[in-house]
Nucleic acid binder design. Structure first.
Lengths: 217, 217, 217, 217
DNA sequence: TATGAATGAGCTTTCATTCAT
DNA sequence: AATGAATGAAAGCTCATTCAT
């Protein structure tokens, strides 16, 4: 049981490292919540996957609900951090939009938990996000992104006037998000494999076309 | 919904009417599953709401999982039935698309459970839909709808060629669906009331514009 | 459901025949109780197997417990009736014993439920038999059987004196009964197929030998 | 039975001792299964009797069925352990057989659950034993016991040749086992008190006689 | 006589959480 | 910091039995 000698190299470090334990728990929790939803997730499963003790979860995160909140906040924080690195201001407005659409798509691909977590939070009517200051702060920055691109496009005579940046923002998310979140039912309804490489490439192209047509003169 | 006479709210329908009981259970289950997800839904709560006995649920539907499947099949059946009544073929292709976008929006408004159920099913990786023949059959009809409109539009020189009807179909759903399913987190992220009458009207307009621009020459 | 027209010949007679229904229920109950024990037996399963309505069971037999009692009484009645037909008094005492041993064996083979029912009743500490007059009456006759054979054997100088007929009776039953009731665990413990034709023949021979040795001079 | 000190009956053993808890559960389960059978046994009753939490039962034993399996394996293990201590090889073959018959009898008297558990397992068609390696191993040793005695008896000119040790083994068990398992119905059928001290002594004598007559020249 | 609908009590099992060390 | 033992509440589900026709 406790046969770890302290100085030999252990494959899975039981070293008393609070930060490491916390982050292992968070990683495991993200997976479990994404896979099974808030209600479906099992604290036991998280502890097992995190190679941690169940008691630790309560020690660090107080409750399952709070753990979910932390996972969710981190998820929002991460996506906003990634967006910051896009450097859209240096690009031609049309290319900036295209890059943003591609980025959104790729982010969902590489972080499939994100969508699932957001769905869970919406099922819970965003009750965890409501009390989260962090999320509100990082979100503000993000909404400004599209607004800037639109204004630059209009100034350069490339885009039409009057496009609401929030509506556009929502639509950029929607055309990718929906495709992923509904991939399982969609594959059945449309009797088509929606997640093959080819199908994905086609969808990205379609989405870029859609967004550019929205802003075009 | 059910055959209750409207002015006498029967306190305890001990009437021995299997069909009525079944449909009360289904109605209650739809609500509960929509509100709390598949895992979060409580069989007790369904029985209570249906003014039925828990035992009856198992008698008629075998298990919670099967009950969910039935609810889901009915939901798909209902939306497809409503679409059938749209009579789009008699309209100008542009008007037909507009009506379809509006219909989709209104259906989600009037049947908020639909989105929630579909989300739950996707969390479950569509395992209930997979074994459902009913859904596959009713879906086939529906996919043809947009295809017909597109072809008519192209023939009349109103729409460009080469628009994939499945992609368009998905996009029509996406721009409405996403708005609803993410209304709670969205309201926080965008710091804007997304479900007010005005906000809704604006979104519908934006969506119609989006869809028409996709097909325009 | 109730589409039986009264005058056409129906494959499974739904004719209102109380005796037939009762006996179908009894037959089904015997099987179910034998297979699953008193607790393990399911009233539903009995009704299904009997091609009868569950309500009928309660109509005719009052409760599951009383149904079990009736089944058990019948089982005892049947075995005693069969024994009566053996006509042992006309045989040589040794042959009479042999026939009795063979009969016991064969009865268990042909009525495997008997053993199982008796086991169930013993688990219930014979609480159903206690109140049964029928069983006490038919049993009395039976105990006399062996006593008569023994006396005849002693009189003819074939058997030794002083063998207790009750002990012998018990032993005759024991050497067969145990073999059957423990056939499943026995096959594992002894790593031997106990129920093959050859194994059975061998056991019968051994049992006859055992019983005859008990009484021999 | 367990490690409770004899004079202080501890009202609520909240001691955090996994082994003790497990063995209390096993002891209680043995009683409950013996009394009510596999189906009739109540997990609640076991928890109560074990002075443990119902949750602990599932923690340690996974399911009611597995708990039964463990109880059963232990029961077989215990009887075989006791037999090992008999030291039959040092005795005269006839005395060895007598001792074995007496031992069997006494073991059933002192461990009345054993018979009941075995009966339950046979009702279940030995499905728990099938997957138990432990039982198969301990059984092998036991079967050799009688074989050795028989061979020694034949070598010394005391027993006849050709007696199958397995048949003898079964018969030794049968004449005691049947008496106990059928004590309740037997007392009614034979209208005789079968479990009095005198009745028992008489039965033991009869059984020893029976077994010795089987092997005698 | 016969039946399908309905039920309350209670079953096994699961879960998030807390206790003791 | 870390852990295994323990628990109350409640979940899904099953059962013998009764009701209404």
């Amino acid at each position: 049981m406790s046969a770890q000698s302290p100085d030999t190299q252990s494959p899975r470090p039981r070293i008393r490292d609070a930060e490491a334990t916390k982050s292992r728990i968070l990683e495991a929790a993200k997976k479990e919540f994404a896979k099974n939803g808030l209600e479906g997730a099992r604290v036991d499963a998280i502890a097992l996957e995190a190679n941690a003790n169940k008691r630790m979860i309560y020690h660090y995160f107080e409750s399952k609900e709070r753990l979910f909140q932390t996972v969710l906040e981190n998820a929002y924080f991460d996506i906003r951090e990634s967006e910051k690195k896009l450097d859209l201001d240096s690009l031609d407005p049309r290319e900036a939009l295209e890059r943003l659409v591609r980025f959104t798509w790729n982010y969902y691909i590489q972080n499939p938990e994100f969508i699932s977590l957001v769905n869970s939070e919406n099922l819970a009517q965003a009750r965890h996000l409501k009390s989260s200051e962090t999320v509100k702060i990082v979100s503000r920055r993000f909404v400004g992104l599209v607004d800037t691109i639109l204004k630059r496009g209009v100034a350069q005579g490339l885009f039409r006037k009057g496009v609401d940046p929030v509506q556009l923002n929502i639509t950029i998310a929607a055309v990718s998000y929906y495709y992923f979140t509904n991939q399982y039912t969609g594959s059945i309804i449309f009797e088509r494999e929606l997640m093959s490489e080819a199908a994905q490439a086609e969808r990205i192209r379609f989405n870029i076309e859609t967004i550019l047509r929205i802003v075009s003169l």
